[in-house]
Structure formats: C-alpha cells, structure tokens
Amino acid sequence: MSFLQALRSFFRDAAVNLVRGWKVSLVAVLTIAVSLFLSGVFLLASRNLARSVERWQREARVVVYLTPQATAEELAVWARRAAAERWVQTVHPVDPRQAQERFRSIFPSLADLVTAGSEEPLPASLEIEVRPAARGSREQLSALASWRRAPGVTLIDDDREWLAQVQGLVAVIRGVGLVLGLVLLGAAVFTIGSVIRLAAFLHSEEISILRLVGATEFYIRGPFYAEGLLQGTLGGLFAAGGLYGAWLLVRQRAGDALVPSLLAADFLAADQLAALVLLGTAAGLIGAITSLRGETLRSG
C-alpha cells in the first residue's frame, strides 16, 4: 500500500469513526474550539492594543511646560535650545494665548476656566517631536533630566512614560492569554487523547485482528492519528469561525466606546488565523499520539 493510499484509507476510517461516535467527538472538538477561541480572544486584543501602541509611539512627543511667568523671549530661547538637540525633529512653541485658544476649542464648555486675566493662565510650552531613531536614546533622556532641573521649567510630559505602561499591559494580556491558552490547550489535548483512547478501546477487537493478519503499527495507528488530527482541525476551524463572529458582533455593538473599538479594531491576519487552526491540528495529533503511546494498543 502506498503512503498516499494509506493516508486516504486512514482519513476515510477516521471520518467514519467521527460520524459513528459523533457525540464523544463533538466534546473533543468543542473543548479544543473553546480553548483556541479564548486564546484567540487574547491574541486579538493584544494584537490590536499593540498596534495602537505602535501608532501612539510614532505620534509620541515631549511637552515642556515653562513657568507661568515665562516671557515670550524665554520661550524663544527654550525653543532654540531644544532645536539644537540632535534627538529633536521639530519644536513647536505654544504661548499662553495659543494654549488657551486650543483649550477653548477642545473643551468649549470649560472655556470660562481659562478666560484671559484669570489667576492661573495656561503656561507656555514647547511641543517637541522626537526623531524616530532617537526615541528613548541616552541623549534624549539626559537632556530631559537636565531640563527638569532647569529654572523656568515646571513640568516635562514625555509620552513614552505612559506608553511604556500600556506596553506593559499588552505584555500582561499576552502573558495571561498564553498561560490560559496553554492550560486550555493542555486540557484539549487530554480530552482528545481520552476520546482517541476510548476509540482504540472500542476497536480493540479489530486491532487484534489487524495485528493477527499482519498489519503494521503504522497501519493500525494511522486511523487514530487521523481522527485526532481531524478533531483538532475541526476545533481550530470552529474557533476561527467563532472568533470572527464574535469580532463582528463587538464591532457592530461597540459604537464609539473606546475599549471595544480599541481591542477589536482589526481582525487577525490570515497567517495568525491559519496558525490558530494549525494549533488545533497539532493539538489533536499530539493528543492522539500521546494517548496511543506505549502499550495502549497492545491491550487490544
């Protein structure tokens, strides 16, 4: 029997077994589907969050706030000083009047808070765009550190600081997803293994006959491996389908809500989706192989 003939025979037998024992097979398929679905949810969330962080990083800037008493000359001096730094791409000085106008346009209902002549007008500031290659460089960090100590500067707001926190959150989500995915995948492998072991037990009489008439181990085990592989692949496909359905639902219902639209901005890439399904396939195969290791089939 050629290898291809054997594969064809294995998958045919496996398909028959799946249909005959569909209830037990469904449990295995759903277990792996649920575990991959949950892993996929974490993957999707972390992917979208990571992409947002990347975008924010590209737009990240440093804002240097001067004291309220800073004059226009002092603002100009600081602007020249900043522009002289190699890590700085552009410098945009914002005087108190421009700051107030901007505040009023963004928060019209709070415009009264910053009316001219109030006690604490908005301070002058410098909006600095950092060269991509110099982001987080030692040069930048040491310059910002020295500016923080300089008289005339009240506050330096570096976007990198909160972006680092978001990146940490992404890492946590990925980690939790990975751990949860591994645990659930382990459970799925165990379930598939149990289902395959049960199938092998139910076929023990046939296995003993196959062995008697001269079937090789490859021929005897092949249909069970194929069965695990099919279960895992089906589980992966169910998970991918379920994930897409859930993503569409969230997108439809999210509206302008920040968190859902942030976490479900884009669906998984084709290669990630394929990897999810292949993970199911691998889990099914591993479940089958581990369940038939050693003497499992010998008892037949």
């Binding site: 003939q5 008439v213 001269g214 090789t216």
Partner: peptide, 21 residues
C-alpha cells in the same frame, strides 16, 4: 472465530488485501 460483528463477511475476510493496498 474473532470476527467483527459490525463488518460484513466481505470486510472481515478482506482485511489483509486491504492492508496490502
């Protein structure tokens, strides 16, 4: 006898040829 009850006589008899392709 060691025959598989759910398989036909033909299937029971033709295990080896099937294995041999």
């Amino acid at each position: 006898f060691r025959l598989i009850a759910r398989k036909t006589v033909f299937e029971n008899v033709s295990y080896l040829p099937r294995i041999l392709g």
